[in-house]
Design a protein around this nucleic acid. Structure first.
Length: 881
DNA sequence: AAGGCGATGTTTTTT
DNA sequence: ACATCGCCTT
């Protein structure tokens, strides 16, 4: 073991020195780090002009900063918490800090660990550090996402968690498929206990850095009391497959750090300074990962905004940022509060809403800007009307209106709570021909055709990849159904080999009949052939062999051509010769292609695989409207291969890079979810669908109670603060929910908007005359109690309306409002209790998790509900209505 | 083995 | 309303 660790460390050191190319930008680094410049220049052979450039700009990055930013940048040593409100220039401060660390000689580029959540953020940071330094920042090997950095570390120490360093990274599809197998094997009714649910639980545990044996027994009741058992089996299975899921990447790192002091110490020495972006989004595993690495020198700088924590539902712990000063006593806390993005009204509206949350670290955003429009608020009859109005408004703003400068479509965005809300806008914009773009739809590498193609590539690289085999063994249809696939599985398991070998054996011993047999043989041989090409790339012997064959074929062609030339016109032999020639031509083409593949053209190899497997053909023959798009995507995929040296390299990276890069040109309105909008900004922002139950989402409140509501409120805060100039909030009185028309009430967040910063619009057209003019009313203006029926939806009296509805106790779906949610209420229940929920009816408690109860409702099925919403069945009569 | 029909459950999403 | 999924038919 010691030997392994030792060699790992050596490997590691070599890797870092190799990755960090001193030669590339040695001069600049030498300058900033105070090394012997002349020596470095000699060695690096960098043009002197570059040195001149650096010398001419002593420290421009510091002069660009405001006092708070500067404070955060200059506090280099010890723990620092940078509380950066929306639009306060946190990325600027973060990048300046990195540059400053380098310049002050505190660390070399390879000694800084800079962590982000998304590849996009990492890219952005690299770009900006590079720009500040005056060129591309090549030498920062440890700037990346939690996951990509974890992979890098894990590859070095895979053996410490029972993996080989070439482990594969599973996507969610593979994960679910694997779990399904285990569930079936465990004799569990997959219908009652879906694999997705188990996957969710396992993810949750991994997010909390819980290995199977560390899962608290209080949670053992989940998933038919067999959750932890299946979790353990799943981990075992992953190990045999030499694979990791996303959660494992972090979990394994944490486990290694915790169990191997020497390894941890090594990294603690390497990473002299640690920077973390979006700290409010870290989960427990990420928190431990960071804390372990920072433990020694405590040179950790976390940047975040507790008010923008919107990923609690996937394991993020706001608590991490709230607790920072306790975790790192003596931490230097800096607040970035000067906002460079939005007008005062927008900031005030956002602040007003977020003030409703308890337990904030607290920041007061301010701005130098004096002018600006109020946040606009408008009610509509229904969702379609809302979409219509927004469409017209966008076009009006595009033309320039009311003395406002025209705002291009790229500067306008619609931010919705849930993606299904996008449809109304897409429909409307299609009919009026308004160009739009949906941000954050299904990601490129998540598409079916891309995953299928990738499975083929995985098989070519490693034929023993059983998950890939399963995925495509019958795609395209090869007549290999459940029966045949079960036979393959059995044969493979008995022989203790991979499915690919099992299939070969099954074919060889005639264990499979019918047309499936031939097809399976072809599939197995295809994989062999593709794999042969992968393993013989650049093999000189094979290249010679193919070259010779190509020559032979060409000679043969010449011979035929000569024969043809001497034949008389109309000679019957000529036909045969021409046929021969065309056959020869295609053989030559194939041989040439094979030779190119052997020479290292992995793009041709990929094309060949998709061609020979019949995968391309399958989509060509497909008559569905999306087939052409899928073929287009496959072409894109091949194009993406170009940036990599080989298929292996491609597969390695793709697992972690899941973003969609296709950005078509042209001015377009952006439509996206509030989550997808975090970090973005637009001059004009529309926030539709502010209705209770939709936003805040009913489900969020049911499942997480007050915590959920507060997260929704942060989402509202994020939404408003995306706007630079103009922010328009809207709601509809009627909306179709799951096909049923439902009457909606304005969101409680609307009540929380400070009136002084809001302008209320009556909808043009439908009510109040239909002349298309938007007549502004001040919210504060006293309004006649005799509001007309039509005006109810946009009058300043919706508050009263809500009050009326509440005091009258009229049935409404939003009963969470005003309820006291008592986290301790959970203790009032135990498993087996018969209980009542106003929405789901009667049920039996089947488990307890934190402040939530898992209940098997007789009508609604199994749900997890906050205990505050539950009463004992015998008290059901006390529940209103 | 493969395509057609009724029951089902519907947020947010990165890696 | 709608898509997905498992089951049932051919």
């Amino acid at each position: 073991m010691a030997l392994l660790v030792q060699s790992g460390v050596e490997n590691f050191a070599r890797n870092i020195c190799g990755t960090f190319s001193f030669a590339a930008d040695g001069a600049r680094l030498a300058y900033m780090n105070g090394w012997d410049e002349n020596e470095a220049f000699e060695a690096a052979a960098v043009p002197l002009s570059q040195r001149a450039l650096m010398a001419a700009r002593p420290a421009p990055y510091l002069d660009d900063l405001n006092p708070a930013q500067r404070e955060a940048v200059e506090a280099l040593d010890g723990p620092v918490l940078m509380l950066a409100g929306a639009g306060t220039g946190k990325t600027k401060a973060l990048t300046a800090r990195i540059v400053h660390l380098l310049r002050m000689g505190k660390a070399r580029p390879n000694e800084i660990l800079a962590v982000t959540f998304t590849n996009k953020a990492a890219r952005e940071m690299k770009l900006r550090v590079g720009r500040m330094l005056g060129e591309v920042a090549e030498g920062m090997p440890w700037m990346g996402t939690f996951h990509s950095l974890s992979v890098k570390i894990l590859r070095r120490h895979a053996e410490l968690v029972g993996l080989k360093s070439n482990f594969t990274i599973l996507d969610t599809d593979d994960q679910i498929r694997l779990l399904k197998q285990l569930i079936v094997a465990a004799n569990i009714d997959e219908k009652r206990w879906p694999a997705r649910m188990l996957a969710g639980m396992i993810d949750g545990w991994k997010n909390r850095a819980l290995t199977p044996e560390r899962v608290p027994s209080s949670e053992a009741s989940g998933y038919a009391h067999r959750g932890t058992e299946l979790y353990a089996q799943y981990q075992e299975r992953l190990r045999t497959l030499n694979a990791c899921d996303f959660g494992d990447l972090l979990l394994h790192c944490v486990v290694i750090f915790q169990a191997h002091e020497d390894v941890l110490a090594q990294y603690q020495r390497w990473f002299r300074y640690i920077l973390v972006d979006e700290y409010q989004d870290t989960n427990v595993a990420q928190y431990l990962w960071l804390r372990l690495l920072a433990q020694g020198h405590r040179n950790i700088c976390c940047v975040g905004d507790d008010d923008q924590s919107i990923y609690g539902w996937r394991g993020a712990e706001v608590g991490n940022i709230l607790r920072f000063e306790k975790d790192f006593p003596g931490a230097h806390v800096v607040r970035l509060e000067q906002n460079y993005r939005s007008t005062p009204h927008i900031l005030a509206a956002a602040s007003g809403v977020i003030a409703g949350n308890a337990g904030r670290l607290g920041k007061t955003l301010w701005t130098d800007v004096k002018e600006g429009e109020k946040v606009r608020l408008i009610g509509h009859w229904d969702g379609e009307e809302e979409a219509r109005w927004i469409g017209e408004e966008i076009e009006a703003l595009q033309r320039g209106r009311r003395g406002l400068d025209p705002v291009g479509l790229d500067g306008q965005a619609i931010l919705v709570r849930a993606s299904h809300q996008m449809r109304a806008f897409e429909d409307r914009f299609l009919t009026i021909g308004l160009p739009y773009r949906v941000i954050g739809g299904p990601r490129f590498y998540e598409r079916q055709e891309i995953r299928d193609a990738m499975a083929y590539f995985r098989l070519a690289v490693s034929p023993e990849d059983d998950l890939a085999f399963e995925r495509v063994v019958n795609v395209p249809k090869r007549g290999l159904g459940d029966k045949a696939q079960a036979d393959i599985q059995r044969t493979a398991r008995q022989a203790g080999v991979a499915l690919h070998e099992g299939a070969r054996e099954l074919v060889a011993n005639g264990g499979i009949g019918g047309k499936g047999a031939g097809q399976l043989r072809a599939f197995v041989e295809g994989i062999d052939r593709w794999h042969w090409f992968v393993s013989n790339t650049h093999n000189p012997v094979e290249i010679d062999r193919y070259s010779e064959r190509l020559v032979t074929l060409r000679v043969e062609r010449e011979a035929r051509l000569e024969q043809l030339a001497v034949l008389a016109e109309g000679d019957p032999l000529a036909e045969d010769l021409r046929l021969d020639l065309s056959r020869l031509a295609s053989r030559i083409a194939v041989c040439k292609r094979d030779l190119d593949i052997l020479d290292g053209s992995h793009m041709l190899l990929a094309e060949m695989i998709l061609e020979e497997s019949g995968y391309t053909e399958m989509w060509q023959n497909d008559k569905t409207p999306e087939a052409p798009g899928r073929l287009e995507n496959l072409k894109e995929l091949i194009k993406a291969l170009e940036q990599f040296d080989n298929l292996q390299g491609f597969l390695e990276h793709v697992a972690l890079i899941m973003d969609n890069e296709t950005e078509e040109a042209g001015e377009k309105v952006s439509i996206m979810t509030l989550h997808a909008a975090k970090g973005l900004e637009f001059p004009v922002v529309f926030l539709p669908g502010w209705e209770d139950g939709l936003f805040p989402s009913q489900r969020s409140m049911d499942e997480s109670g007050l915590k959920g509501l507060e997260e929704e409120r942060r989402l509202a805060y994020v939404g408003i603060t995306r706007a630079e100039e103009l922010c328009t909030i809207s709601f509809a009185s009627n909306r179709r929910v799951y096909g049923q028309w439902q009457s909606q009430l304005p969101s409680r967040f609307i009540d929380e908007l400070p009136q002084a910063h809001v302008e209320v619009l009556t909808p043009p057209g439908l009510y109040g005359g239909g002349f298309g003019a938007a007549a502004p009313f001040a919210v504060s203006s006293a309004m006649d109690e005799r509001v007309s029926k039509a005006d109810v939806y946009n009058s300043p009296g919706w508050k009263r309306m809500q009050d009326r509805v509440q005091t009258r106790g009229v049935a409404q779906p939003q009963e969470a409002r005003g309820m006291v949610i008592d986290a301790t209420a959970v203790s009032a229940f135990s498993e087996g209790d018969r209980v009542f929920h106003r929405k789901f009816g009667y049920g039996i408690v089947t488990g307890i998790e934190g402040d939530k109860l898992e209940i098997d409702f007789s009508k609604a099925g199994i749900k997890k509900v906050v205990a505050g919403f539950i009463v004992a069945a015998e008290d059901a009569d006390d529940v209103p209505f």
